[in-house]
């Protein structure tokens, strides 16, 4: 249904808002699915529980955004159809969310980078003129506060830990840094609703985000990459790395094999 609306070409008033809401939902769903891979595999029981709790919070955010997107789309759209029946190129999550979980350092660094971004984004979104987006964000920012605190503490623990844990954090930074630029690069649908006055704009958050990263890195004895280099983009407009397809293969398996099955 959404695809039909898009391929018809004409930009309806709400199209961009739908895309943006799906972007927020996809970010949360894909990172939730990634983190859930730690279930039963965390380094210690308490941290296994912590990362899967974060997964659950993210899943809750995704559900709220999908439910809202389904209302905006109307007809027979539903949160489940949006999560389970869309193809890879219809997903609008940032590339950062879909990257493999890697070792604990990669998972921790990604969560920290992402939570720092989500914390600023949701605080901004809580002031949106769209009341439902604002309500979802002001609810979720309370949970993200815990995610940011937990992941910063782990960045410091690993960075300022042993030679081994420090080296792994350095590797993680090298692996993930190229996916951070996309977070602050507005997609066309974002620019559109920004022009409509619905959101303030993600690029305005970058400076404060860098400061957050820099402060924690400095406590963790980690260096901020000086050469920002090549930034990989495309996820927000549906051009993904090979990893998203594999996540969806697992996530959507039941609904693809038995469409619309319920239990």
């Amino acid at each position: 249904m959404l695809t039909t609306m898009i391929s018809n070409g004409s930009m309806l008033h709400t199209d961009s808002l739908i895309h943006y809401t799906l972007h927020l939902a996809d970010n949360a769903l894909i990172l939730s699915q990634r983190n859930s891979e730690w279930c039963g595999h965390g380094p210690v029981l308490e941290q296994d529980i912590a990362i899967t709790n974060i997964s659950l919070d993210l899943l809750g955010q995704a559900r709220n955004f999908y439910q809202y997107a389904a209302i905006l789309i109307g007809g027979t759209a539903s949160e489940d159809k949006l999560a389970y029946h869309r193809n890879e190129n219809e997903f609008k999550n940032c590339l950062l969310a879909e990257q493999p979980k890697g070792d604990w350092a990669v998972t921790i660094l990604r969560q920290f980078i992402f939570s720092a971004y989500q914390y600023l984004l949701y605080r901004q979104l809580a002031k949106s003129t769209d009341h439902q987006l604002a309500a979802i964000a002001s609810k979720a920012v309370k949970e993200v506060t815990y995610h940011l605190r937990w992941s910063s503490e782990w960045v410091i623990r690993l960075g300022d830990g042993t030679a081994e844990s420090h080296a792994r954090m350095v590797n993680a930074i090298q692996d993930l840094w190229m996916f951070t630029g996309e977070l602050f690069l507005p997609a066309p649908y974002e620019t559109e609703i920004q022009n409509q006055g619905i959101i303030t704009g993600v690029e305005k958050l970058q400076q404060e985000w860098i400061t957050t990263i820099e402060n924690t890195f400095s406590e963790a004895t980690l260096a901020l990459p000086t050469d920002t280099g090549w930034m990989q983009t495309g996820g927000k407009t549906g051009r993904h790395t090979e990893y998203l397809g594999r996540i969806l293969a697992e996530l959507q398996y039941m609904q693809r094999i038995y469409p619309n099955c319920e239990w």
């Binding site: 308490e46 941290q47 529980i49 912590a50 709790n53 974060i54 949970e143 815990y146 605190r149 937990w150």
Partner: peptide
Amino acid sequence: LISQFGSTACKAL
């Protein structure tokens, strides 16, 4: 504090 995240979303250990 043992962990900021506990047995359910609302609890710490």
